[in-house]
Design a protein around this nucleic acid. Structure first.
Lengths: 206, 206
DNA sequence: ATATGTGAAATCTTTCACAGCG
DNA sequence: CGCTGTGAAAGATTTCACATAT
């Protein structure tokens, strides 16, 4: 089950397979098929089978897939059998919402550090964590060996924060600020921007 | 400048072009090239030219693109020269953060209604708006002719809310709940899920 | 000299359709 | 009989490379 040369577009679909399978698992469904899974998430059965075949043979002919087994295999592939500690930079409204989100812990993630540059925020407690000064991002993150960061600062400071995260050794950044970040090519970045998502839909309206 | 038969993947890139161009515009840059724009957002120059050529000829040979002109053309293409009123369902932490987000108003959107089913939330004021009872989603949204909705409710009620939004005439839904929604094919849906985005990156780590 | 717009080529992605196993 | 896993075909997307305009 080697994982080199896997198209990025395939990797992008795996978390959605896992999401749907975890729902089934939660609902007590023990077996499924590429057909059933596909219709749940709007992807063709052939595509699901092709995607999964990149990583191994997880199904049984005539029978389908064992949900718990496929869930655990996908968790391994996506490396979320472990828990990734994350650093959150930006303790505004959005940062607060993310710090309180209960979904991370059951899916391989945990907010371990929160930073902000606003003196009014530094020292405050959010969800049991104390907000630290952004001036210490590099030292503190490096000392704790954290590899995943989330940026929820205003757009003007997002690139500076990203630079600090990279200096601290962070290798994956989830960026909520509406700007494309410049990072070394070995650092992963994903973007979450409601404006981008909304504009993609309004194109089709009216 | 007709807009039929445009590949969805092209539409998905247009908001990012617009985002970068608006940054340039804000910084006083008056002219750019496909080369420069591409290196800002990590897309090839040829791809940008091909994408834009689907909608018209916006550049000048030897010169490049006039930033303000291209911004306004992209705004027209994405239909964000007007303001889209939106209904937000779910007044939890995330809903609050979204209701207070200042970025919508300058990019073609406005949160016009907020709903929640929790009696403790109903009647509360968020950013000048009163939280209404989710039981009235269909009537109120229909009466106001709102076409765009955002879902920030717990996963268990997301599909029910989506059904109500569709009944109310909503044609575009931005869904923050971690579930694939079943909607009629003429209704647009976009998903924002940090777990999905993070898992897509952890695949590449270690 | 510079940079667009665009056919053609190259590459990537999805779908088809079926052998083979339970 | 049902459903996977998979080569091969079809289809979609990206890149190339250059004629053309400034």
């Amino acid at each position: 089950m080697p994982s080199n040369n896997i198209p990025d577009i395939v990797v992008g679909r795996l978390p959605r397979y896992l999401q749907a399978l975890e729902h089934m698992h939660h609902d007590g469904v023990h077996t499924t098929s590429s057909q059933e899974l596909g219709s749940m998430i709007g992807i063709s059965a052939a595509q699901i089978r092709k995607d999964l075949s990149q990583f191994g043979e997880f199904g049984r002919q005539g029978k389908g897939y064992a949900v718990p087994y496929l869930v655990s295999q996908l968790q391994n592939i996506l490396k979320v059998s472990r828990t990734w500690e994350m650093a959150l930079v930006g303790a505004g409204n959005l940062g607060h919402a993310i710090a309180h989100y209960q979904g991370f812990q059951t899916h391989g993630f945990r907010v371990a550090l929160i930073f902000d540059s606003d003196p009014a925020q530094i020292g405050q407690t959010i969800g049991g964590m104390t907000v630290e000064d952004s001036a210490h991002i590099v030292d503190v993150i490096h000392a704790q060996g954290i590899k995943v960061g989330m940026i929820t600062v205003p757009v003007e400071s997002a690139q500076t924060v990203a630079d600090d995260l990279v200096k601290a050794g962070v290798q994956a950044i989830l960026n909520y600020a509406p700007i494309t970040l410049a990072v070394p090519e070995n650092v992963q970045v994903q973007y979450i921007d409601p404006i981008v998502s909304l504009q993609r839909m309004t194109f089709y309206l009216e």
